[in-house]
Amino acid sequence: MRLLAVDWSGDLHGARRRIRVAEARPGRLLEVRGGLDRDGVGELMAELRDGPESAVVGMDFSFGLPGWFAREHGCATLPQVWALAAADGERWLRECPPPFWGRPGTRRPADDPARPLFRRTEQDARDRGLHPLSTFQVGGAGAVGTGSVRGMALLGAWRRAGIGVWPLDPAPGPAGVLVAEIYPRAMTGPVVKSSSSARAAYVAADARVPQQLRADVVATEDAFDASLAALGMAEHAAELGSLRVLTDPTALLEGAMWLPPREHFPVS
Rank of each mutant, 00 (worst) to 15 (best):
L4W: 04
D7Q: 14
D11E: 15
D11F: 12
D11Y: 08
H13S: 14
A15N: 05
R17C: 13
R18M: 11
A24E: 00
G27I: 08
G27K: 06
R33A: 15
G34E: 02
G34V: 04
L36N: 09
D37L: 09
G40F: 02
L44D: 00
L44P: 03
E47G: 15
R49F: 01
D50P: 08
D50C: 10
P52S: 15
P52H: 15
G58T: 07
G67E: 06
R71N: 09
C75G: 10
C75K: 00
P79V: 13
V81H: 05
L84W: 00
A85H: 04
G89P: 07
E90S: 07
P97F: 05
P99I: 00
R103E: 02
G105C: 01
P109I: 00
D112C: 03
P116V: 11
R128K: 14
G129W: 08
P132Y: 03
L133S: 13
T135A: 15
Q137G: 00
Q137C: 07
V138I: 08
A141R: 15
A141E: 15
V144N: 02
G147K: 08
A157N: 11
W158D: 03
A161V: 13
G162D: 11
W166P: 00
L168D: 03
L168S: 02
D169I: 12
P170M: 12
P172M: 06
G176S: 05
V191P: 01
K193P: 06
A200R: 12
A201L: 15
Y202K: 14
V203F: 05
A204K: 10
D206Y: 14
A207V: 09
V209N: 04
Q212S: 15
A215V: 12
A223I: 01
A226Y: 05
A226R: 01
A230M: 14
G232Q: 03
E235D: 12
E235Y: 02
A238C: 11
L240R: 08
D248T: 02
P249G: 07
T250R: 12
L253N: 07
G255H: 11
R262L: 13
P266W: 13
